[in-house]
Amino acid sequence: MWDHEIRAMASTHAIIAASVFMATVLPAALVPGFSVYGTHLLWIYSTSGAVTAVSVAVFWLLGVTPPTKKHTLGYKLSRLLRSCLYYFLSCLFFHTVVVLYGAPLIESALETFSLAVLLTSLTTLRCLCVLGPNVQAWIRVFSRHGAMSVWDTCLQITVACTVVGAWVGAFPIPLDWDRPWQVWPVSCSLGAMIGFLTGLVAAPVWIHYHRKQLTYKCK
C-alpha cells in the first residue's frame, strides 16, 4: 500500500544507521585514545550529533515534516527556536527521569546529562522532525489510534525501542562483574543505541508485514 514510503523509510534508516556507525568509527581513527568505554562521553556526543544532523537533513529533504501554515520567515524562525527550546527541555526532562530512576544526583551529573542528550536526539528529535514542535501531537501519536501516517507508526516503534533499550540497559549495573561497560552510563547509552538501531530495522519490517492491516484516518 505504502511501498514507496516504506522504501523511503528503509533508506532513511539505513543512512541514519550508517551515520551512527561512522560517528563511532571516525573518531576512533582521528582522535587518539578513543574508545566507546574509555571516552564514553565523546562517543555519546559524536553519535548524538551525527544522528541529529543526519535526521534533520534527511527528514527535511524528504519533506516528512508537516507543512507549515504560514510561509513567512519570522514564523519559520520561531518554529526553529521553539524546536531548539523543546530539544533542550527534553534533555532536562530525560535528565530528571533518569535521576528519579536512581542515577546519582550530583556526582556524575555530566554523565547523566549526556545520556539525556543521547536519548533526546534519538527520540525527541525524531518527534520534532516528523511532527514539528507540537506537544499535543506527540502525546496523540503514542496512542493506539493516534498514528496518522506510516511515519507516525515508525516513530512509535523507534521511540519505544529506544526507551525500552535504555531501560533494559540499567539492569546489568548492579551486577558484580566489574566490566567496563557496567560503569554509569555506558550500559544505558549502549542499550538505548542498540534499541534505536533495532527500532530502525524493525520499523520498516513491521510496517511492511502489517501493511494490510494499517489504516490511517486522516491525511
Binding site: Y101, G102, I139, F142, S143, R144, H145, G146
Partner: peptide
C-alpha cells in the same frame, strides 16, 4: 517507578 510510569502511558495508548 517503571510500573507507575506504565499506568499513564498505557492509558494514553488506549486513548
Amino acid at each position: 517507578f517503571s510500573l507507575a510510569l506504565y499506568i499513564p502511558i498505557h492509558l494514553n495508548w488506549d486513548g
